[in-house]
Design a protein around this nucleic acid. Structure first.
Lengths: 358, 358
DNA sequence: TTGAAAGCGCTAACAG
DNA sequence: CTGTTAGCGCTTTCAA
């Protein structure tokens, strides 16, 4: 409770100047051993805790990297209106935890830890009564964001001040680094697998094409179909996290007459939901219809049947992002004109039961 | 790249004082509408991003809560020496992700988000070349730690400066709030379940009794045994995260002659590992021996057989912690003498296959 | 409603 | 090796 001790208090108690106190902590070797011990003792006695704010202000560096992510409570369809089918299928976050973003975030955490940076987590708020983007941006040395969480103009501005990286397929802002998985290739191979190994012919894609990743996946899907002389159907609109939209997509499929051979979802989250909806509709997967996902989240291993999917190197995506911004940070003063990185990591096909594989 | 804009730049461009700029952001209603617009326009034009450090220094608040957790690379036995059995059983973190700490952290994140706080993540480092504890402590308004990550004297000191909460069973530092699950009760009931429902008699506990949680679990275990007229055996030393220790514990069991009826592990992490070790030794679970865990992590649902355990309300533990420190923060100035919270959340028995339940 | 001015606690030249 | 001295950018009285 006592007023927190400052460098001045420590300096006074140790009988030295505040500069010496500062050096004792920041550049120990610059201070004579005996002096250092005195200072350390004084600091300990006073319960001195250096102020991160003051340090950041004076040095111009915070030692933290920011991660800006989604608002998980965003899904008004589930939390708010509560459509019956949402409740039935258990569409809440905990049902799927850890999600794609959680695993990527885990990679970010691990790499920050390894590199000695603290990680400042923030994100969209359901109630936009605050302005958290500048809030977090002003407190970190570099910023990492998930696609779609920060508007382009804001990203643009921020990227002029600090290194900014977005997990996204698209390149929309000049100076922003991007890291993504090979969405096109993954979906191409998965589609090809269904066609060649399982002899499926009528394949339907469901996803939210406004998102760059999903669009790339759809393009991989249509490319594979074309290469095998098949024609693509238009994508069914469905959005991960908006259970209602996925329910409607699946229902549309059920109502449209004979089922296609396969339903290829843009994400595992949607696919697992689809599995659950199909089952409660009495449709057998994979016998009546094959279902696939994309991402490789744990929920796909726990589903019935287990989910065939494309696994992204989630942890590695996170680690790569951190490495990239730290590198950018080091070049920041030196060569401001360094080109932003545009990284694409390889993915892996995961054959499980939902496509008909054993 | 341009030197980042400050209040001075914005003030100059808007033709007002820096105080007005500050007010525009912090207390909009105090500024005339037209002035505010002018300031906002100037800020936007300059790409102004308020400095969190300066703000924190001046206001004395950071708007962030710190979470200090384990170093996941800590396990030298796995990463370093690489005992063969560690490699065999796949003892790395990703095998178990998300761990107990991850799910608790998730709750912390969610609640911080909901309450408008940013979350600063930090933790022990394998290489202790830095001093991250004060580092993070100096940058946040309140600190949450996992038991055992911060030495008591440090906790003591920090708790005199900011609200501190530890996820721990023990109360070792006066002013530190604690949140924990009911370890004793959970293990008591689990032990009772094995005795009453499955008729088991010789039960062995494995865990790291130096940890308060594990000790409480062991005590619940012995209490249940005593209440049923059975005698407890000494606990086998095993530590979660230190695969080698668990391997040795299980091996000791195998070498000691006839197997006991059950192996009750202090954590799921150890139990899942035990399952894997027993299987490779040709021992059938639960037929030859029952195995149980504690925590309720996802890995226990994926194991073969699935793991009977006690589930802690992990997300809720995290959320409760955040609520508690925020409340403490609000009382901080008002009534410094507020007693620290000592919370204990209820747990739930989860019957799965590894104890012999269907 | 706005401005002037005094810090907040620390770092980093620059002297000595 | 240590001390002096400017700030770092913002918040916050207190006046006007």
């Amino acid at each position: 409770m006592a007023k927190r001790a400052t460098v001045y208090d420590v300096a006074q108690r140790a009988g030295v100047s505040i500069a010496t106190v500062s050096f004792t902590f920041s550049q120990p070797q610059r201070v004579k051993e005996s002096t250092r011990q005195t200072v350390l003792a004084a600091a300990a006695a006073l319960g001195y805790v250096p102020s991160g704010s003051a340090r950041g202000l004076a040095s111009g560096r915070t030692g933290a990297i920011g991660l800006y992510s989604y608002d998980y409570l965003l899904d008004g369809e589930v939390a708010g209106r509560g459509e019956p089918e949402d409740l039935v299928v258990g569409a809440d976050r905990s049902w799927f935890f850890p999600l794609y973003v959680d695993e990527v975030q885990n990679g970010v955490e691990l790499e920050c830890r390894a590199r000695g940076y603290a990680l400042l987590l923030s994100g969209e708020r359901a109630t936009p009564d605050t302005r958290p983007i500048p809030d977090v941006a002003g407190r970190v040395d570099a910023l990492i964001t998930f696609a779609g969480t920060v508007p382009d103009p804001a990203l643009q501005r921020l990227s002029e001040r600090i290194p900014v990286l977005e997990f996204s397929h698209d390149v929309r802002v000049d100076r922003v680094h991007t890291v993504t998985a090979d969405n096109h290739d993954g979906m191409y191979r998965l589609t090809e697998h269904l066609i060649e190994e399982h002899g499926l012919r009528t394949l339907v894609f469901a996803g939210h094409l406004a998102a760059g990743e999903a669009r790339a996946r759809y393009e991989g899907h249509t490319a594979a179909l074309a290469d095998h002389g098949l024609t693509a159907r238009p994508a069914l609109p469905s959005r991960p996290g908006a259970a209602g939209s996925t329910v409607r997509a699946v229902r549309a499929l059920l109502d449209a007459g004979p089922l296609p051979d396969a339903l290829m979802c843009a994400t595992d989250q949607e696919a697992v939901l689809a599995l659950s909806i199909l089952r409660s509709a009495g449709v057998a997967v994979p016998d009546d219809i094959a279902v696939t996902g994309f991402d490789g989240i744990l929920a796909g291993r726990l589903s019935t049947p287990t989910l065939t999917t494309v696994r992204q190197p989630m942890e590695e995506l996170g680690r790569t992002a951190v490495r990239t911004v730290i590198e950018a940070l080091q070049n920041w003063e030196a060569q401001p004109s360094t080109r932003p990185q545009r990284l694409r990591l390889p993915v892996e096909l995961v054959r499980r039961a939902s496509c008909g594989c054993p």
